[in-house]
């Protein structure tokens, strides 16, 4: 048998170390919310005044914080939410293609979360129920505008579609947990969440 990492997390992708060389090169970080509720982003803001410390070390690319629409080459990509529709897949792929490290942030990204509670129903049943059968609907029809992303037949956590480097579980993860993982990564350490920081609810 080959020397495998068993079920340990994947090995750390080396990041350029902050402060290496003469000039301080800021790390680029992108964030997005797919099939999520932005709760994880709110929790991200809960790192409070440490945001000021963070922005000394990182520069934000695509993110609700910057309103940049597409992600350029980044060091760290942070994904909130799972995959519920075609657009989620496009955005996730864009992040994976551009980010050296991809982090799944929060329950929905990690295991599908609340949106995945629809997975025991067929999509056809759901669309029928919502747009045709529901009480009070007259001449309901299923929206078919090409502008709208089509829903996937099942909601997937992001690791089922792209390779994910790190996971921060929680609904949402606490600001402290997010801070811990980010600072560990920035310091070149394997991120580790101790008791109280790792939680699934």
């Amino acid at each position: 048998m080959s020397e495998l990492d068993k079920f340990a997390p994947s090995p750390l992708t080396p990041l350029p170390q902050v402060g290496e060389g003469n000039e301080v090169k800021k790390l680029k970080v992108a964030t997005t919310s797919l099939a999520g509720c932005f709760g994880c982003h709110m929790s991200f803001l809960d790192i409070d005044e440490r945001l000021l410390e963070l922005v000394k070390l990182v520069e934000f690319d695509r993110s609700p914080l910057t309103d940049i629409k597409h992600c350029g080459p980044c060091d760290i990509g942070i994904i909130e939410g799972g995959l519920c529709n075609a657009e989620n897949v496009h955005v996730l792929r864009e992040f994976r293609a551009n980010c050296k490290i991809l982090i799944a942030l929060g329950a929905c990204a990690v295991n599908g979360g609340l949106p995945a509670q629809r997975n025991h129903l067929s999509l056809a049943t759901i669309l029928e129920e919502v747009y045709h059968a529901q009480h009070g609907l007259v001449d309901g029809f299923i929206p078919n505008d090409p502008e709208l992303p089509l829903p996937l037949d099942r909601v997937h956590p992001i690791h089922e579609v792209v390779k994910v480097d790190y996971f921060i579980p929680g609904c949402p993860p606490s600001g402290d947990a997010i801070w811990k993982v980010l600072t560990d990564l920035l310091a070149g350490r394997e991120p580790e969440l101790g008791h109280g920081l790792i939680h699934y609810d």
Partner: peptide, 29 residues
């Protein structure tokens, strides 16, 4: 789906997973 489970915080499966630092489900659901 821990966020909606009444047993959360008092669940042995969850607590054991915390203990063993399970960060993700790893496999396909």
């Amino acid at each position: 789906f821990c966020p909606s489970c009444e047993k959360s915080g008092d669940c042995q499966l969850q607590a054991t997973a915390y203990e063993l630092k399970m960060m993700s489900p790893h496999f396909d659901h």
